[in-house]
């Protein structure tokens, strides 16, 4: 019988612990498919964050390291500098990457550290039960912004791709979503491009996934995707924010 669909080799058989309707599963799969297609599983070292994806080390079949909260880019830096031939990636959430780990993120990018960062932005802290994240939208209700995020006291959300694309060390930055087939396909292309950026030795790459958290947002999975489209995407526009590849540079020519 012809096989028409199977699990990527770079994913283990472990059942994930993610909530129903969470997009982590899709994103894991996209990364694993790219590891398979680029033949990178054997040379890959992934770094798991603290947050919902903390146990990503159980789900990817490549070698994995679990990092202290926010420090994944520093851990990845250590791995990549020690083993330049390894394909090194981090998988981080918004609290991990844009709050406690801001310094590690920004400086890894500024150094042009030749690693891939996969950033899952769902505008809320999932693992600890729905607190305000650095990317929580103005007015958005969370456990720790119960009256809606008041920018006068809690400040404004951080647009990570825009921020990092100002740095010379960032080679590739793209914001994607996995809310529909078209976006999932575009997201996969972005993941592959990020790995290719590393393989080409061009420096730091980041793919930001605008994601949903039905559990902590208090929606059904499909309602959550509607809310994502209506509220997240206007604040966090999808698109390529930086691409230093020859091809992209060529396209930029008039």
């Amino acid at each position: 019988m012809a096989v028409v669909f199977e699990k990527p080799h770079a994913l283990t058989d472990a059942p994930t612990h993610y909530c129903p309707g969470c997009t982590h599963g899709i994103i894991h799969r996209l990364i694993a498919e790219c590891l398979d297609e680029l033949g990178l599983e054997g040379s890959a070292v992934g770094v798991a964050p603290v947050g919902c994806a903390v146990m990503a080390y159980n789900y990817f079949s490549c070698d994995m390291i679990q990092s202290p909260h926010g420090r994944a880019p520093a851990i990845a830096t250590g791995v990549k500098r020690a083993l330049p031939s390894a394909a090194v990636f981090t998988y981080q959430g918004d609290g991990d990457l844009a709050a406690i780990g801001t310094a590690e993120t920004v400086h890894a990018a500024a150094r042009g550290e030749n690693i891939c960062v996969f950033f899952v932005n769902n505008a809320i802290y999932g693992m600890t039960g729905g607190q305000m994240a650095p990317t929580t939208l103005p007015g958005q209700v969370t456990q720790t912004s119960p009256y809606g995020r008041d920018v006068k006291t809690a400040g404004y959300p951080i647009r990570v791709c825009e921020l990092l694309s100002t740095l010379d060390g960032t080679a590739f930055a793209q914001r994607v979503a996995v809310d529909c087939v078209r976006n999932v396909l575009a997201a996969k292309k972005a993941v592959k491009k990020a790995f290719q950026t590393q393989l080409d030795g061009r420096g730091f790459s980041i793919v930001e996934f605008i994601s949903s958290c039905p559990t902590n947002w208090g929606f059904t999975p499909s309602e959550a995707l509607v809310w994502l489209r209506e509220h997240m995407l206007p604040y966090y526009p999808l698109g390529v924010y930086k691409d230093t590849s020859a091809q992209a540079q060529g396209e930029a020519q008039p």
Binding site: I65, A74, I75, K80
Partner: peptide
């Protein structure tokens, strides 16, 4: 960028 980053880079290299 900091001692925190430095020790985590050590951790990454040691893990490797």
């Amino acid at each position: 960028e900091s001692e925190i980053a430095a020790i985590n880079m050590v951790q990454g290299a040691a893990a490797a």
